[in-house]
Each structure stands twice: as C-alpha cells, then as structure tokens.
Design a protein around this nucleic acid. Structure first.
Length: 515
RNA sequence: GGUCCGUUCGUCUAACGGUUAGGACUCAAGAUUUUCAUUCUUGCAAUAGGGGUUCGAUUCCCCUACGGACUACCA
C-alpha cells in the first residue's frame, strides 16, 4: 500500500505571491486532488527580518480567489495554530513551531552530521573578502571549516564555553567530502552531484533561535508526512543538501518525491519574471492588487478584470499541457487531466496576449445576466441607472466584442447616453445634400411603426430605402452616425430596437447639431 | 568563476527513432456583416550549431554556443 498523497505549498510571507508562486500552488493542488490527496498550506516565516505585514493574508486571499482551497493549514481564512482532527500538524506557521527545530539540529551535531560554528559576521566577512581578493568565490566548505572557529576545531570544553557565553553561534551541516549524491526529480530525471562542490549550510541560528529554510523545510515535510514536494526550480540547487539531510536524519526511506518546476520568464528580454516587470510591461504579475509600505500599487489580475477561472486556466498552461488540443479547462477538468509527466522542463515566457484571449473565452461562457450585474457597477460609477433587463439585453448584443467587463463601456456607451460628439469623417463620406431631408422622412417612417422591434425595422427600413431610390450606404451610415456618434457597433436595427422609438428618433433629430 | 537545469514557429506548446514537424496566441489576406467587432477560410512562421549512434534522428549520446537558477546566519 502506498502512503496517501500529501503535498504542501509553502510560501514565505515576504511580499505578495506572484504568478509563478500561484502556478506552483496550482500544480500542487491539481496533483493532490487528482490522487485524492491533501493540499496543505504552510507558512515559512523563519526569516523575521523579511516578514511583510499583510503578505500572509494576501496569500490566503489569492488562493481563495483562484478557487484553490487547502485541505489543511487554514480554517476560516486563517492559518491554523492549534492542532485539531482536521489540522493535526498545527501550527502551520513555522515561527510558531520554532521549538521543534533546535532538537533536530542538535541531534545532527551529536551524531556527527553537523557542528557548531562560532564565527562572527566580521570574521566571515574577512575570510570572504580575502577569498575575493585572491579571485576566488568564498564557500564555507570542507576546506574552510577546518580553519574556522567551530566545534570541529575547538576542544569540547571551549565549545561548551562558547555555547553558553555566546548567542550568535549557528549549527552548520557537515557536508561529506567527495560523495556522489544521486537524486531523482519527477520532471527532470536522474541528477548527480558531488558533495565536495557543496557548502556547509547553516541549519539553525542561536541569535533568533530559528532554523533556516533547509532545516525547517525538511523537518516539517517529514513531520507533516508530505509525500511529494513540487516547488520552483530555484530550489534545485539545494536538493542535494536536502537529500543529505534526509539521509543524516535516517529518513531516506520516507523521503518525499521531488519535482522542480521551471520558472516563469519575462515576456521580453531575459531572466525570471520579477515583481517590477508587471508595471514596466503593462500586465500584472500578481493575482491581486498589492500596495506596499510606500503606498505604491502593483496591479492584480483580479482588479484588472480577469475571471479567476480564466486566470487559473492560463496559468495551468504555462508549463503544462494535456497533450490534446483542448485549451479551455475548468479547475475540475484540470484536476482530471493533470500529471507531472506532462509538465515541460523549460521555462515559459508569459504572454499577455494569450492571457487576454483566455479571458475573452471565459467572458463568453458567462451568462449575460452575470456580466450585466458586473457591468452595472461600472454604470453606477458613471451615474447611470438602467434596469437590469435593459443592461442584460445590451450585454447580450455586445458580449462577443469584449475580452473584459471593463471593455463594455467603450463598446456600448452610446446605449446608455446620447452621443455628444460625432465622427466627422463619417459625415464627410456619407452625408449628401438630400440626407437631412431623407432622414426627416425616415423619422416619419419610424413614427409609423407600431411595434418598434428589430424585425419590424428590418422589414420596413431597407425596403423603403430601395423603394424611394435612396442610397443604402449613405442612409444607413448616417443613421448610424447619429445613433452612435461614430462608425462602430452592432446592426442599426438592433441598436434602435433596444434604444426604443423615442430615443432613436430624438437622436436622429439631433442631426441639426452636426457641424 | 563554480554547481545544476534548460534550448521546436515571435510566444505557449505537440510529435516519448519513421509526420508534408501539428495546434493555440499574435500578425497578414479573403469571405460574411452596406459600419466596427465577431465568425469562418487561407496564409506567414520553428527543430541553436557541430559531431556521433542508427537503415533512419526534433527525439539517444558527446562537444560548443546561448539562456536560466543557485552560489547568505533569505526563502
């Protein structure tokens, strides 16, 4: 029998989650749900220096907006702090688990896998700059540790003394020499690294009594019975360390499987997508809007009008595909179709155009009622009150032309207010000497239509134009000019039927206002 | 510099040794819509380079180039 699938998303609350992080969370979620497993949210806040207020709440809200609901770790929108049946491994915030880690670090020291290091930051800096002066890059490794002030070089008595006197010592992992670490990655296959190229990473710090990422991560994954670790590629270089840690703890048999996701890249140029790219390139890099301490806003997909399902869909396809030609997937369908085997190895550049296309597809799937309700908020801001029925009919007519709800105003503002300006190029092209007089006749014609429906207008107007020998192009385009103000929009009959007889005629009469 | 990862149309990707290298986005052209948009049709456009292995390489191996990540008492 295989153990239950349990995955975790473990962000650190150092700022807003960006879309790469959301994608990692999504893949974890899909992977777990596909296998009937659990998706756990854990907050890795072991760096007290970089903690950003509000970031944790942001992460929770962003996941919720995407429809990704953790099975464990949050309850009622809050990180769980007390163990319960549903959340047996609480607290899920590492800063509240700090007492757990020291014992593990000391256990490693006792058994010879780690050691105490007493170097001050000044001493470290000195060695580092000396190495740089020699043209080398400083790494705290097996060659260096023999020269430093550690429990390896000091006598047990001295070590004990320093341990009790000093409060800024650390525990470092004692990386073995010349050992070939063989690892497997679910996406990349076999990877081998010689341990001699690795350094002695700090595992635990006396100064703040906190572990570093590496220790906390391995310990918590073990304690929380994580079966599969799916995380960003930036963690690949520390995978050997993590493997060694599992080995040192004697946990190799229950070690989770690992999968490292390629990074999301800038749409132009080079490098991984960063927080600044969004504002520079004109698309959001964050799921939700974020305001920093300085009051600067970074755009969010939610605030930009993206439909969460569309956002999730497009994110899923950045580095994964189902192998079929289907591109539109609900969260449920994604769950069904997802597999790590179909995750691509190379980094994906984010494509804002395609993102827009996805939203358009989802917008069309929404009912006109729903869209009208959302659009009425925009109308309200502009001080326009119209019945939901009317707004729905307008949306119905304009739905296929929009990619976002926010597009509607530019598309159909003339359905809500009489045009105040007119595109004179249209007038120049289509307005003839007799146009004004013809339009007077058209008004009379419209006044005679009892039921001012699209069908009736379509039956009567073109026939009359032909009958009386008017120019179709001239009359229709001038009519449009008066109704819309420019050369755009749905059929003239559609517009008039919705506008109603009175408003339509009123707009035609305004021909006298044309310059 | 070192370690590791990667490289198919402009972009996202398919093709797990045999295809006219497929699809989507973008772009262009045409049709429809007497407007605009939609829709439909068509088109443009790629295996980084060089060596192997093989009857046959996008696919396997090696080298080079390029890109990326990491190289903190950050995650």
């Amino acid at each position: 029998m295989t153990a239950k699938t349990r995955v975790r998303f473990a962000p650190s609350p150092t700022g807003p989650l960006h879309i790469g992080g959301v994608r990692t969370a999504l893949y974890n979620y899909l992977f777990a749900k596909k296998r009937g497993g659990d998706f756990i949210l854990r907050i890795e806040d072991t760096d007290s220096q970089r903690f950003v207020p509000g970031a944790e709440e942001y992460i929770i809200e962003a996941l919720a907006w995407c429809g990704i609901s953790p099975d464990e770790g949050i309850e009622n929108g809050k990180i769980v702090e007390q163990p319960s049946e549903k959340h047996p491994f609480a607290p899920y915030r590492q800063s509240q688990r700090k007492d757990i880690y020291r014992g593990y670090a000391e256990d490693l020291v006792k058994r010879g896998y780690a050691y105490y290091a007493f170097d001050t930051s000044e001493e470290l800096d000195a060695v580092r700059s000396q190495a740089e002066a020699n043209g080398d890059v400083f790494t705290y490794n097996y060659q260096i540790r023999e020269k430093m002030k550690t429990s390896l070089t000091l006598s047990p008595e001295e070590t004990e003394k320093l341990l009790s006197q000093e409060n800024n010592w650390v525990v470092r992992f004692k990386m073995p020499v010349n050992y070939i670490i063989k690892m497997a990655d679910e996406i990349r296959g076999e990877i081998e690294v010689n341990s001699s190229t690795l350094d002695d990473k700090v595992l635990w710090k006396a100064a703040d009594q906190l572990p570093t990422y590496h220790l906390a991560n391995v310990v918590d994954d073990k304690l929380m019975e994580i079966s599969d670790v799916i995380r960003g590629e930036e963690w690949l270089p520390s995978l050997p360390l993590h493997f060694m840690l599992y080995e040192a703890f004697g946990w190799s048999d229950s070690r989770p499987r690992f999968a490292h996701l390629s990074l999301l890249l800038k749409p132009d140029g080079k490098g991984k997508l960063s927080k600044r790219d969004g504002d520079r390139l004109g698309f959001p890099v964050f799921p939700l809007e974020w305001k920093n301490d300085a009051g600067e806003r970074s755009r969010g997909y939610r605030e930009d009008g993206y439909i969460p399902e569309a956002f999730v869909n497009l994110l899923a396809f950045l580095g994964w595909n189902p192998g079929t030609e289907q591109e539109i997937f609900s969260l449920e369908e994604l769950t069904e179709a997802f597999s790590l085997e179909r995750v691509v190895k190379s980094g994906a550049k984010f494509n804002p155009e395609k993102a827009k296309w996805y939203n358009q597809e989802y917008l069309r799937m929404r009912s006109s009622d729903t869209l009208a309700a959302e659009f009425s908020l925009v109308l309200k801001e502009k001080g326009i009150e119209k019945s939901p029925e009317y707004t729905t009919k307008v949306i119905e007519l304009f739905k296929d032309r929009a990619a976002f709800v926010n597009d509607f105003w530019n598309l159909c503002d003339f359905m809500f207010k009489t045009p105040e300006s007119y595109d004179l190029k249209v007038k120049e092209k289509f307005w003839k000497e007799d146009t004004s007089e013809i339009l007077d006749q058209v008004i009379v014609l419209f006044e005679g239509i009892k039921e001012f429906t699209k069908e009736n207008i379509e039956n009567i107007l073109p026939a009359t134009i032909k009958e009386r020998g008017w120019q179709m192009g001239s009359v229709m385009n001038c009519l449009r000019l008066l109704l819309v103000g420019e050369s755009k929009g749905p059929g003239v009959a559609d517009i008039m039927a919705l506008l109603g007889k009175d408003e339509s005629i009123l707009r035609i009469r305004r021909k006298s206002l044309l310059p």
